[in-house]
Design a protein around this nucleic acid. Structure first.
Lengths: 186, 186
DNA sequence: CCAGTAAGTCAACAACTGTTGACTTCGACG
DNA sequence: CGTCGAAGTCAACAGTTGTTGACTTACTGG
């Protein structure tokens, strides 16, 4: 039992990160204050900067996330949505890092750039495995629909969308993803 | 010739409103400062509040816009996108009020509510004219795709999307709108 | 038991924000 | 010409924000 501090450093650091994600996720970047995050954890604001040096760095760390999209090479077109959508739901609803980034991307160029990187490094390559042609355009179109869904459902909370189940959404959106990835527009 | 002031009140008022739209549109609500708007017009900050009383009221007026969606009753399904998309492009690119609202909606509950009202009062009713059934769900899905497109193209500036022409986008997105409005998911 | 170090607090700073009230400028009109 | 009201400025306020540096607390290893 090497250490048993009343509160180990890693513990409060993680707590601060969680609180930051929650605040950034519901209030966005500018409306989230260091003091509020600190007080959520019951700690002095100075400690937050001691651990994360900056509001900007705190945000950067809070907004890091991995989609973990599976390899799509052997997935038949009709099952693309069944494979993809659950991953999106997971990132949107469980991991707390997506919403902060989405909200902040709307008004902060830096956050927008970060979101663009997530798309370029995680989404586009995975989708390239199944795109018929014009892979970058197809991936971007899928991204626009997916992002629009997240924005409408979690940020705007458009009533019908916010209340639908995962299954209902998959049935509606599935054919669209399949179309964007594999079909040629008329 | 009743009035010929060097700068009539209505003129500077309109100039302030324009500057506000531009600032809100590119920087979002919180990062837009009264002082910056005032200085864009070459005027004292106090004058801005004299005309608009509040930052919040200034934003409210700057973010008002009308979609002017046409009556869709006699539009055949295959031409829905040809009729709808040009209106969206017009509001996105010419009128300066859409982007401020979209950006602000991401981090301000009030702005989100305003955007929801635009959807409920202007988009949903117009689309109800052609929706096969579940009109509210179908309208919301169209809204999610349209919003996602705007977000990706104008806020995030996803490269392929930002560079595509109106015609290219219409060809890709058109079938999706048609599907959401008229087809049953499999 | 005691010193060292990590964990945390405290008060304060400088900058910036929205907003206010009193003042000035100036064109129009009787 | 003189005055009246609109158009606009000025300086300043009160509050909030991120960030800093010096200080205190408390656990642990020797």
């Amino acid at each position: 039992m090497p250490e048993r501090r009343a509160r180990s450093a890693v513990t409060t650091r993680a707590a601060i990160l969680d609180a930051a994600r929650a605040r950034f996720g519901t209030n966005g970047y500018e409306r989230t204050t260091m003091r509020a995050v600190a007080s959520d954890v019951g700690v002095d604001p100075a400690l937050v900067v001691r651990y994360f040096t900056n509001k900007e760095s705190l945000f950067a760390e809070a907004a890091e996330f991995e989609l973990h999209l599976p390899d799509l090479h052997d997935v038949p077109a009709q099952e693309l949505a069944t494979v993809l959508m659950p991953r999106f739901f997971a990132v949107w609803e469980n991991d707390g890092a997506f919403l902060p980034l989405l909200r902040a991307a709307a008004s902060s160029p830096r956050a927008a750039e970060a979101m663009l990187q997530v798309f370029a490094r995680q989404v586009a390559p995975a989708l390239a495995a199944v795109a018929a042609d014009h892979a970058d355009e197809r991936a971007a179109l899928v991204g626009s629909q997916v992002l629009g869904l997240a924005f409408s459902r979690y940020v705007l909370r458009v009533p019908p969308l916010a209340d639908m189940t995962h299954e209902q959404l998959m049935r509606w959106v599935g054919p669209v993803l399949e179309y964007y990835l594999t079909t040629d527009p008329r």
